[in-house]
């Protein structure tokens, strides 16, 4: 049997070899003078998580198309790989290295110090160095808004929140959301569930769907989901049981039109694009950069897919809330600050 096995493998390999030789064209390396070279290091969710990694990727691709920069993106394999990736790109004299996700802070702190002439940017993290732009979002402000919208749209006065894992970032979404719900109606209950305890929680739409169905059965009729690629499961549940959901990070309204009230949009794509443009125009600035309701970095989605949910009085109400938050009249609880006490 051993020989048979070997021959089977050899034969298959030869066939595949022939196929590949014939079918795959040679790699033509474009000999262009590199303009601005941007490295984009995505978090473990990968560039197609339909959530903030893909938003970052989209922003970078837009910059590549419109600004003519060279973009190299890589997806991290594990928590140790971030620093290696940052250093490798820096050594290759990339002009701007963008890291997505808080896990990259440790690595970037060291690498940016080692390469003071290279520019870095990090999304969702803070690195206190002159050559690093720390891009942070006020997610809790947006969560507040969608919370109020959820409460307002709910007919059962029970809404839900589904998070991926119990980590500070998601707690931040949750606390802001609950505050917004209670702003609209003190009597509305919020049911919260978390999908899992390992990284698989961000990639488990089936379980998310099951949790959503359970929450709908327990009375909720609007569920806000902050769980990366698992979110699609919640949208499925919404469609199946004729209830509603709210998406996160990217505008996800298009996925199941009619069932998704809105999405909490975190304009990572805009932030990434703008960082790249700054670099290209030679105007790169290090330091903290806050994106929130004030500058449109955080917003609730309004497009042709959710028109029916956002009638004029609702939009007016939300816009008023927005103005109050921006002006400071309403203070949205920020889990990060709560923890720091």
């Amino acid at each position: 049997m051993w020989r048979v096995g070997l021959w089977v493998c050899s034969f298959t390999t030869v066939v595949l070899f022939a196929v590949v030789l014939v079918a795959v064209p040679a790699n033509v390396v474009p000999a262009q003078p590199p303009i601005v070279r941007v490295g984009l290091i995505l978090d473990r969710g990968g560039k197609n998580d339909n959530s903030f990694n893909s938003a970052a990727y989209k922003g970078a691709m837009k910059a590549k198309r419109e600004l003519g920069v060279y973009v190299k993106y890589i997806e991290a394999t594990d928590i140790m790989s971030f620093e290696s990736m940052q250093r490798a790109l820096a050594k290759k004299h990339f002009d701007l290295i963008i890291g997505i996700g808080f896990s990259q802070v440790d690595g970037m702190t060291r690498v940016a110090k080692e390469f003071p002439h290279t520019h870095f940017a990090i999304v969702d993290g803070k690195v206190d160095l002159p050559n690093v732009k720390s891009i942070m979002f006020e997610e809790q402000e947006g969560s507040y808004l969608v919370g109020a919208l959820a409460a307002r749209s709910s007919k059962t006065h029970v809404v839900g929140f589904i998070g991926g894992m119990d980590i500070p970032l998601i707690r931040r979404f949750e606390k802001g959301y609950i505050a917004g719900v209670h702003k609209y109606s003190k009597n509305t209950r919020v049911l919260t569930e978390y999908i899992g305890i390992t990284g698989e929680a961000w990639n488990n739409p089936s379980k998310a769907k099951e949790i959503a169905l359970t929450l709908y059965n327990e009375g909720a009729d609007v569920i806000f989901v902050a769980a990366g690629a698992s979110g699609t499961g919640v949208f499925d549940a919404a469609e199946e049981s004729d209830h509603y959901a709210i998406g996160v990070d990217s505008d996800q309204d298009w996925m199941k039109p009619g069932y998704i009230i809105t999405s909490l949009v975190k304009r990572v794509d805009t932030a990434v694009y703008s960082a790249i443009r700054e670099q290209k125009e030679g105007k790169f600035r290090g330091g903290e950069e806050w994106w929130g309701l004030k500058n449109g970095g955080i917003d609730y989605a309004r497009d042709q897919y959710n028109k029916k949910f956002l009638d004029t009085p609702t939009v007016d109400y939300l816009e008023q809330l927005k103005r109050d938050i921006i002006s400071g009249k309403i203070i949205v609880p920020d889990y990060y600050k709560m923890k720091a006490k």
Binding site: G46, N48, G196, T198, E200, N203, N204, P205, S206, K207, K209, E210, A229, T232, G233, D236, E239
Partner: peptide
């Protein structure tokens, strides 16, 4: 049935 598309690593253990 339990979802409406394939997503990477959806078997989740």
């Amino acid at each position: 049935y339990l979802a409406s598309s394939y997503s990477p690593m959806m078997s989740a253990g």
